[in-house]
């Protein structure tokens, strides 16, 4: 490749995604081989894993982009990305904690924080809506699904 002017920009996020996919595929392939080396067990998983890893290799160069001098790469503002990550973090916390703190408390807390993160600044509206929505949801799903779920207050 002839050298062009400009610098190389690394798309770290994309690189991380490919790393995750690679780790999962390699783990799964190795685990499958560890369980049994019978052809019937490897029939699909082995070729599919190799294929996936080859694809990762082909896509890898796309994580590095050469940007010519002066060209601006468009980027979303850091604060917008920050809000996405904040919501993601709250969502993960909610989904993993609901079993322990009770569905009612977890849902209400998630709704209040979620509404705030999404831009609702009127606290009366926020808390009111969250409370009503949480109650309705718990009553509705509670009436329908044949499983008990832990509640703390309701």
């Amino acid at each position: 490749m002839e050298s062009k002017p400009g610098r190389i920009v690394v798309m770290w996020g994309h690189l991380a995604l490919l790393a995750v996919i690679t780790v999962v595929v390699v783990y799964y392939w190795m685990d499958t081989r560890a369980v049994s080396m019978q052809t019937v067990n490897l029939l699909l998983v082995q070729p599919a894993s190799i294929f996936a890893l080859l694809l990762v290799l082909c896509i890898l160069p796309q994580c590095f982009r050469r940007v010519s001098e002066g060209e601006e790469i468009e980027k979303e503002s850091l604060s917008e990305l920050g809000r996405v990550f904040a919501l993601m973090a709250v969502f993960i916390t909610f989904a993993l904690s609901m079993q322990y703190v009770g569905f009612d408390v977890a849902t209400f807390a998630f709704m209040v924080i979620g509404l705030f993160l999404c831009g609702e600044r009127n606290w009366f509206l926020n808390i009111g809506f969250s409370a009503v929505f949480t109650s309705l949801l718990i009553w509705g799903y509670g009436a329908i699904i044949p499983f008990p779920f832990p509640l703390t207050i309701l």
């Binding site: 919501l87 509404l115 929505f133 949801l137 699904i145």
Partner: peptide, 27 residues
């Protein structure tokens, strides 16, 4: 959307729980 996003995320979480009735769905 500021109301819809958290509401739908919660509904999806309840829905994922409703399938098996275990934490497996939400996780």
């Amino acid at each position: 959307l500021r109301f819809l996003i958290p509401s739908v995320l919660v509904v999806a979480t309840f829905g994922s729980f409703a399938i098996e009735g275990t934490a497996a769905g939400p996780i």
